[in-house]
């Protein structure tokens, strides 16, 4: 039995580290987008490196946690749900990384006049990420608090959609090349997608929570 409690403790801290990595990924993403828009190339590249590391770390931790859950056959009843949750959260940081790396690869020429909108959209997506991490933490530690975080995820996702639409309307009314319009719009879509992925996780988490409380 003490062995069981010990492995439980290690696993608990691994799950915490995994969630920290996702949450940090969001913050780094925000700073990364900011430095791209402000043309701070060196800082931007540093952010890209940081986010790649965080994504790798999250991947490794997720695998370790999954292995542990199965080798010690822990939480047999909720194992599937926990694995689902971790994999979906991993998708969030994946999307974050891809979006930021695409900025580096494609170097979109975003009109300065909509920088503020981009920053606002990024802020909403990152908030959605942050809230879904909080909700996931509550799922492990304090099941009654999950719902308090989930409704915030939905709120920020809607905000992100709203800002994305506003941004697109602005872009497509600008007197710039169609290619640039489409390119800018795609990046707005990618950033907003982070919130969409977070919303998807929230929907699943809602079901997992109901399953656990009945």
């Amino acid at each position: 039995m003490p062995l069981l409690f010990k492995s439980t403790k290690i696993l608990e801290s691994q799950i915490d580290d995994f969630l920290d990595a996702i949450s940090q990924g969001g913050l780094v993403f925000k700073e990364g987008v900011k430095s791209y828009l402000e043309c701070e190339d060196e800082t931007f590249e540093r952010r890209i490196e940081a986010i790649k590391k965080l994504e790798n770390k999250a991947d490794d931790l997720r695998r370790q946690i999954e292995n542990q859950l199965y080798t010690h056959s822990l939480i047999p009843e909720h194992r599937g749900d926990v694995l689902g949750l971790l994999e979906n959260l991993d998708d969030v940081i994946d999307t974050i990384k891809k979006t930021l790396v695409n900025f580096s690869i494609e170097a979109p020429d975003i009109p300065v006049s909509i920088n503020r909108d981009f920053l606002e959209l990024t802020e909403m997506s990152v908030m959605a990420t942050d809230k879904i991490v909080n909700a996931a933490r509550a799922f492990f530690k304090d099941i009654s608090a999950v719902k308090d975080h989930l409704h915030k995820v939905l709120f920020y996702e809607k905000e992100a959609d709203r800002i994305e639409e506003r941004l697109n309307r602005k872009v497509f009314r600008m007197d710039i090349e169609l290619g640039l319009r489409l390119h800018t719009s795609r990046f707005a879509f990618n950033i907003s997608r982070i919130a969409d992925v977070a919303e998807g996780v929230a929907d699943r988490l809602n079901i997992y929570t109901i399953k656990r409380t009945v």
Partner: peptide, 8 residues
């Protein structure tokens, strides 16, 4: 508020 794993 006890961790799911500890509950387990």
């Amino acid at each position: 508020p006890i961790h799911l794993l500890r509950w387990d």
